[in-house]
Amino acid sequence: MPLYARITGTGGHLPARRLTNDEMAALLAQRGLQTSDAWIVERTGIRARHFAADGEMASDLALQASLKALAAAGRQPHEVDLIVLATSTPDMVFPSTATILQRKLHEAALAAGGQGPIGAAALDVQAVCTGFIYALTVADALIRTGGARRALVVGAEVFSRILNFDDRTTCVLFGDGAGAVVLEAVEHDGAGPGVLATDIHADGRHTGILCVPGTVAGGQVLGEPLLRMDGQAVFKLAVGVLEETARAALAKAGKAEADVDWLIPHQANIRIMYSTARKLKLPLERVVVTVDQHGNTSAASIPLALDHAVRAGWIQPGQLLLLEGVGGGFTWGSALVRY
């Protein structure tokens, strides 16, 4: 029988510092900028977000989410033979944040009297807000072809470090966090649990509409290492490509829109999320929404939303999940998963 990559555990982690819209408005008022809870909620659906503490890195958030996912799967760190981590806010230029996470998992395991995942392949994936879908696709492909048996797939971000707090239209949108899943190889005829299909794309002609145009050279930062976004352009592109990729993933798996039990979209903007659901004729009550409390956590948003829905008891074994995201690059993609 063919191999499939089954999600056997999920985990999520948010930094301790939580900022409401009112607190963000007060912060911006100190800079002479005006915004309000009503303004933010009306345009985005966001009511709060979490910011990492000074010195708290993407790998620290990833570690906590990963430990929770491993515990949910009933697995130990040394049983993982692949780590794929999606992030746009890595700990450093190199090595990959995945290898830093690997070290921290090893240290945590040793402290608990166990072993870490030393020797497991570890790599980062950079596709901004579509990063988790890309990472899931990579891990799924390696499991299906026998390149791995058990993978840890993580999305982790500290976007608060790259926000321009002189731009009220973007700084209120993003937050920090991490989400993770454990994928394990299973054999079945296609009717069982697992990643049934993925669909990923990019269009580099649109790199300028959502970017952080800075780099490091000669020990100095060149350009502007802060987030820039053309919100209207992103919205216009996102609505179209999200519907297309969702239908593509369904077609690859031989499924119809009516078969989907839960839509778990990238948590960027409630209007985009609901627009996609309506186009797919999915009831809005079947859309997992965490954007109101998390903000846009980029590559972490889909696994965070998935973990929230699993732990809340909404998602049940055997249900069909449609995951989808869109982000800078311009990237987009989807995954159809039998839980």
Rank of each mutant, 00 (worst) to 15 (best):
G214E: 03
L242T: 06
T35P: 14
T8Q: 07
L226P: 03
A71V: 12
T198G: 02
G155F: 00
A197H: 03
A5P: 09
R150G: 00
P90I: 06
L14D: 04
T99L: 00
N296C: 05
D167I: 04
G329H: 07
G333H: 03
K279I: 06
M1A: 08
E56F: 01
V260G: 05
I143P: 07
G325D: 01
G327N: 03
E257R: 07
N269F: 00
F235D: 12
P77V: 03
Q232T: 14
A178Q: 14
R271E: 02
G214L: 09
A148G: 10
H106C: 12
R49F: 02
G223T: 12
S301K: 04
R271A: 00
R49G: 01
A29Y: 14
A156K: 06
L173V: 10
M57P: 01
V181F: 03
G190T: 13
R149L: 00
F235V: 14
D37S: 11
L110W: 04
W314N: 15
L82S: 10
S59I: 03
G329C: 09
V125T: 11
W39Q: 15
G155D: 13
A26Q: 15
P77D: 08
D60R: 11
D22V: 08
Q232W: 00
F174E: 08
L70N: 08
L61W: 06
R18A: 13
T44F: 00
T87L: 01
V287S: 04
V326L: 05
V239G: 03
G204H: 03
L306M: 13
L284T: 14
Q34F: 06
A58I: 06
M24G: 01
A299N: 14
A312D: 15
G147M: 08
S275D: 15
F330L: 15
K252Q: 13
A268Y: 09
A38P: 15
F94S: 15
